[in-house]
Structure formats: structure tokens, C-alpha cells
């Protein structure tokens, strides 16, 4: 496999098909756990781990899995790695485990993972499948961080727990409440849509010239 193909697989999830900003997939954890940078980062890393492992295993077994039982198989494989992540997070930090709550277990039904297994890993050899999963995972983490950092800065005046504005700061509390998730996601999607539109306009101008 060429370097170029590898790079292409990797970049797909980070930019062109970013799970949060372009495909708008996996919104449940995106909106729910992004009240702080550290939550967003941990959720992103946990999801990336499950993505890479399950895509790797699905791809490895792809010729063995009959299409009639593929969904059941993918779910069992995904659930296995989610269980592993669940135990590992408990072993690393109980505070983090409590902060992420039920959303760790809900990674099982994260549509990015099942989507990647079904649409990509089941048709691709393990190496490109895992590179693609890594890109998607990092793209998802970037999406979560984009929300988590903005919400933490505005809603608590801190970034990764470090105070930014001193004692005089009046936090914009709604940003760490559920509506804040929608506001910030909406603002990011607006930004991405505006960028896309400008690109299209430039392309059209070039064509005219």
C-alpha cells in the first residue's frame, strides 16, 4: 500500500469526512460529555481506541463473517472493546469514570463505530482499515475538543482545569448546561458551512475566469 493511500485514509476522518462537523454522527456523546476539555479528550481517546481495535478485528475476520450474521458480530466485537475501555478507565481514574458516566457504555451504540465497521473495515485489509479508524477517531476527538474547550472557557472560565481569567470572571453558566452544547455545536457547524460556501464560490470564480 502506498504512502499516499495511507495518508488519504488517515485524512478522510480528520477533515473531509469529519464525524462531528461533516457527517454529524455520534451526537449523543458530543453534546453530553463536552462540558470540559478533559472530558472531551478522554471520551475522544476512549472512542478512538474502540474504533481502531474493532475495525482491526472486523477487517481481520472479514472473510470469515457471513453477511447474515455480520451486524451481530460487529456489535459483539464493539461491545468487547467498550468493556475493556470501561475497566481501563476505572483503573486509571474513578473521578473521570464518574464524570463520563453512562456515556462510556454508550460507545457500543456510537454510530461512527458501527458505521466504520460496516462501510469500511468489512471491505478493507486490516492496515488501511486501522489507519482510517485512527483518522476518524482523531477527527472525532478534535470535534469533541472544539466543543469541550469552548464550553469550559465560557461556562467555567477554565481550560483543562486551569483558571484563565482570575476571580473576577462571571461564568456563562448556560454553556456547561445541555443548551450550551447545542449553541456551541451550532456555531461550529455554521463556521464550517461558511468556509465550505466560500470555497465553492472561489471554485466557481476560477471556472468563470
Amino acid at each position: 500500500m502506498s504512502q499516499a493511500r495511507n495518508w488519504d485514509e488517515f485524512m478522510e476522518g480528520i477533515w473531509r469526512q469529519n464525524p462531528v462537523f461533516v457527517m454529524v454522527l455520534g451526537m449523543c456523546p458530543t453534546l453530553a460529555v463536552t462540558v470540559s476539555g478533559i472530558n472531551a479528550l478522554s471520551m475522544g481517546v476512549a472512542t478512538t481506541f474502540v474504533l481502531i481495535c474493532s475495525c482491526g478485528l472486523v477487517s481481520l475476520l472479514r472473510k470469515l463473517i457471513p453477511k447474515e450474521v455480520r451486524i451481530a458480530t460487529y456489535i459483539v466485537i464493539i461491545a468487547t472493546f467498550v468493556t475493556v475501555v470501561d475497566y481501563v478507565i476505572q483503573a486509571v481514574s474513578l473521578a473521570l469514570y464518574d464524570a463520563l458516566g453512562a456515556f462510556i457504555q454508550l460507545i457500543v451504540v456510537n454510530c461512527i463505530i458501527l458505521g466504520r465497521a460496516e462501510a469500511h473495515a468489512s471491505k478493507t485489509p486490516p492496515a488501511p482499515a486501522m489507519v482510517n479508524a485512527l483518522g476518524m477517531g482523531i477527527g472525532f476527538t478534535i470535534g469533541l475538543l472544539a466543543l469541550g474547550c469552548v464550553r469550559e472557557i465560557l461556562g467555567a472560565g477554565t481550560l483543562f482545569g486551569i483558571s484563565l481569567f482570575g476571580a473576577g470572571f462571571q461564568p456563562w453558566v448556560v454553556m456547561v448546561l445541555p443548551p450550551g452544547g447545542f449553541f456551541v455545536l451550532g456555531a461550529w457547524l455554521l463556521l464550517f458551512a461558511a468556509l465550505e460556501r466560500r470555497k465553492q464560490r472561489k471554485l466557481a470564480e476560477v471556472r468563470h475566469v
Partner: peptide
């Protein structure tokens, strides 16, 4: 038989991974 064999094999692999993770942590 092929379907059952595959499901059984995958269940076994997953079972080993889960138990190892549980005991390891």
C-alpha cells in the same frame, strides 16, 4: 454450520479479551 461456527469463534475471542481485561485491571 458456518454461521454458528463464526459466531461461536467470535464469542470465544471476545470472551477471552473481556476476562483478561477484567482480571488485569
Amino acid at each position: 454450520a458456518a454461521m454458528i461456527r463464526t459466531l461461536g469463534l467470535i464469542a470465544m475471542i471476545c470472551g477471552v479479551i473481556i476476562v483478561a481485561a477484567y482480571q488485569g485491571t
